[in-house]
Design a protein around this nucleic acid. Sequence first.
DNA 1: TATAATAAAGTAAGCGTTTGCAAAAAGTAC
DNA 2: GTACTTTTTGCAAACGCTTACTTTATTATA
Lengths: 330, 330
Amino acid sequence: MKKSTITIYDVAKKADVSMATVSRVVNGTGKVKEETRQKVQQIIEDMGYHPNAVARGLASQKTTTIGIFLPDLNNAYFNELAQGIDDVSKLYNYNIILMSSSISHQNEKDVLRSLFSQQVDGIVYMSYDISDEVCDLLYEKGIPTVLAGVIDYKRQLPSVNIDYKAATFEVMERFAQKYNSIALVVQDKNTNVNQDFRCKGMAEAAKKYPKIQFEVIRAGYGYENGLAVFNEVKAKKIQAILTTDDSVAIGILNAASDQGIKIPEELEVMSAMNTKLALMARPELSSISQPLYDMGAVAMRMLTKLMKKEVVQDQQVILPHEIINRKSTK
Amino acid sequence: MKKSTITIYDVAKKADVSMATVSRVVNGTGKVKEETRQKVQQIIEDMGYHPNAVARGLASQKTTTIGIFLPDLNNAYFNELAQGIDDVSKLYNYNIILMSSSISHQNEKDVLRSLFSQQVDGIVYMSYDISDEVCDLLYEKGIPTVLAGVIDYKRQLPSVNIDYKAATFEVMERFAQKYNSIALVVQDKNTNVNQDFRCKGMAEAAKKYPKIQFEVIRAGYGYENGLAVFNEVKAKKIQAILTTDDSVAIGILNAASDQGIKIPEELEVMSAMNTKLALMARPELSSISQPLYDMGAVAMRMLTKLMKKEVVQDQQVILPHEIINRKSTK
DNA sequence: TATAATAAAGTAAGCGTTTGCAAAAAGTAC
DNA sequence: GTACTTTTTGCAAACGCTTACTTTATTATA
């Protein structure tokens, strides 16, 4: 155990200056004579003084802390986003308070409120979707917030995404040129905007290719659900499939292989997350590539601007996507 | 934008009591007459008052926040541990400040100090290993800390682990009964205690089975390194291999398949993390199972006790491991 | 050299809570 | 009704730092 904490006051006394001066050299604010600056700096180092972030937060009403909200700590999609956020936040010296809501939307508002009471300077919100309620709460609170990989219906909140609708359409169109039975696997949430966009993309394709049969299959997230959904795929004689979640796709892939169905010859599978799982799958998983890391990074960068009250003209960022053909599509 | 924040003072005024009383009902501390309690409670709800965690932290010297330190945000191993931590922390109403050190040990101490200045009540430290320096820093600071999935040489710090040496020995022994050329893939850090234990486990097996050739292969973490390491495996005609990292194992698996090497017939592969990746691999990856989620949970539980200054008799927890045979071993 | 600017340093009032201690109120026992 | 407990409450001092404002020192200007 060390001796009790050293405060700015201790430093001031030892340096024979006022706390204000010490504060100034610590923060680099205001004018301080170079000479005193050095003296104080030296003493700070000698004493091993480290400012108390909590006190600072209370006094300045800024915590240099941002809240990151995500539904699941153990999910490659959010983790890659989070990594982008984390790296940029480091660049700007922000600390991160993590809040996971573990699936249920129920307590989301409480979680958020807890973030508020922590006085975070800003929030990056990630999720499969965002409810109007949450969106309003965030908006009304007036605390800088940006959505990453998710978008709200009303477009009240700044966000960083790809164009889900267009991406889906592209894939669907490509499939439509070769097959007549195509499926989109979508998660069974009701209020999911992102999924909505995907469905719209498919609808558009369906309109353009009226003879082709387009199917929506609803399934949960995760590998097991992919495994499970394969039977439906098989029963319906689907020839090509687009999923949202890599784990689901891999489930389908593996279920197919296990049953001796050849991929991509008998079934083409494309996913839409392009996490690093895609490379580990066999056959390697084709995917719409969302630049997850970049999305996180851009979101965080935007948030720093918002927190500094800089004007950000385009608050609805759409990053380019790609379609990456690996071995699960022809 | 909402009207400016409501403080405990506002509530007190409206309820016509002192701040002290409001504080008491908020925290459930001290005696308050049931009648006033209800009145105040009501007003709190009506006004939508939420205590300011920062001020509270400053006044009480407790932030109900713990720091989680990990090297990589996007790594299934740490994520599963983190999930265990997160769930338990939720149970006890602790918030989480996340700090990732992104690989380099360089700035670890700074990162930790930043955690200190945030006045966290406790720390869960995860990493591939822990340097003596960091260990001492943590120890001297006297802030409750527990290591999860890692152990320090000196055993100064409480920790939760499996018995790496024994687990390795078991696998090695099993391999030794069938083959005469066996490898252990280990990460090329110098000061890695966990790896050390593994090597010791192998050494023991080597001693017991002197005719068998045991090999240590050094490689970095991650899928690509697994891919890369396969050539060495092949060149040395290794027949069975144990890796630390699932991604590395999958790299080996895939490289082998890609080159037409049959697994497990021509090469047995076992890993030691048993993240959910193991199930997604084809063939499914056999693995020593570390109960990662539980390790995280136990670590966090222990931390709560430490923070409450309860005595914890056994501070070096060893959780049982299993050897799970899937399809990559016979 | 006097005077206006400007730079450097200090003062002290917060920031929103908690909490030890004291005061007031409500019970009890006689 | 008095004296003494025991509850309830309120007061006000921290907690460690920032920052508007003031004072003092320094430099530039004429």
